[in-house]
Design a protein around this nucleic acid. Structure first.
Length: 331
DNA sequence: ACACAAATAT
DNA sequence: TATATTTGTG
């Protein structure tokens, strides 16, 4: 278990020099009080949906080309898995013992299984693809809904055999996606929060301006309905929106630099203007769904998405945005 | 070309 | 119901 976690983290942070070093330090174990520190350290670790998946290139294409950086073919989930395997082998051969490295920590979720899109065209094929049918099956616990389904697809379904424009199916605004959306909207002021910009900063592959525009329209209505009216009563409607507290920074805030940070929202949440939000792509791919509208069974707004996280208030208590990364400064 | 809101469609 | 698309306006 402990091994698994470390490996996953390793994989997720491969590009983070500092963290990688830290990981190494753990293995040097002098133990004992180190354990406490490790625990403490782990508490502050970013949640999995805050981590940048390896499957995502850290450098935007434009930037890469601008600095003539070699493309580095963006790794697939399979690559990530293989990397995990390699790391595992390496660690074992090195004699790293993570035996004492605690076991209780449900906080870790693997995102090396790709966040996926499914198009309504093919309802089939949601195989747990990444494994490529080979090993790794042993430690797959997938507690609860964790990675219940995972299909490895890409936004642009490669084959658009007939003709051209592959009809995208409806975008499903998962809590992760929406969180991202809200973060970005909060980060830009009201002024700059226009669909195009939002789309760019969200940096989600396959996300279109129309997607954002539509969602933004709805979101604005939601805002008008809630903070417009003094009564903030039944937030029963729009579970998605309700689950993602509206940052105060939506007030007036151009670059967000001068904004008060640490202000507390009505919910008791910290609505600080996100210091340095995403710069690099984090969320690989939005999730599309089979639109579940033929015989709709469940009424909750949630989808049993590939992460299975119906994270409602993961962030309720403290402000641990392990949320690393930074918005591109050049905007 | 874009943003926007409202209406409408799926 | 959630999202997409259209329409009209700026």
């Amino acid at each position: 278990m402990g091994e698994m976690k470390i490996i996953e983290f390793e994989a997720n942070c491969r590009n983070n020099e500092a963290t990688a070093t830290a990981t190494g330090a753990v293995f040097d174990d002098d133990d004992d009080d180190v354990n406490d520190r490790v625990l403490e350290w782990e508490m502050g670790l970013p949640n999995c949906d805050d981590l940048t998946p390896l499957s995502q290139s850290l450098i935007p294409p434009e930037l890469a080309s601008a600095f003539s950086i070699s493309p580095e073919p963006c790794s697939t989930a399979i690559d990530v898995n293989r990397a995990s395997q390699d790391t595992l082998c390496f660690l074992r051969s090195t004699g790293a013992h993570s035996s004492t490295t605690n076991s209780n920590n449900n906080n870790f979720r693997s995102i090396n299984d790709p966040m996926v899109v499914e198009r309504e065209g093919d309802g089939s094929g949601s195989g747990s693809g990444s494994g490529s049918g080979s090993e790794t099956k042993k430690m797959r616990k997938m507690d609860n809904a964790e990675e219940a389904n995972s299909a490895v697809r890409t936004a642009e379904n490669s084959d658009d055999p007939s003709g051209k424009a592959s009809k995208r199916s409806r975008l499903v605004w998962t809590p992760q996606l929406h969180k991202r959306f809200v973060d970005v909207v909060a980060h830009l002021g009201v002024k700059n929060a226009v669909p195009k910009t939002i789309m760019q900063l969200m940096n989600v592959e396959g996300l279109t301006r129309e997607n954002v525009a539509s969602h933004l329209q709805k979101y604005r209505l939601y805002l008008k309905r809630t903070q417009g009216l003094s009564n903030e009563g039944p937030s029963a409607s729009d579970p998605l929106f309700a689950s993602t507290p509206v940052p105060q920074s939506i007030h007036e805030n151009g670059t967000g630099v001068k904004g008060e940070s640490g202000s507390v929202n009505s919910n008791g949440h910290i609505g600080m203007a996100i210091p340095m939000p995403y710069g690099a792509p984090m969320i690989p791919v939005p999730m599309y769904g089979p639109v579940n509208q033929g015989g709709n069974h469940h009424q909750n707004g949630y989808e049993a998405n590939s992460n299975g996280m119906l994270q409602q208030r993961d962030w309720s208590g403290g402000n641990k945005y392990g949320s690393v990364g930074s918005y591109p400064h050049h905007l």
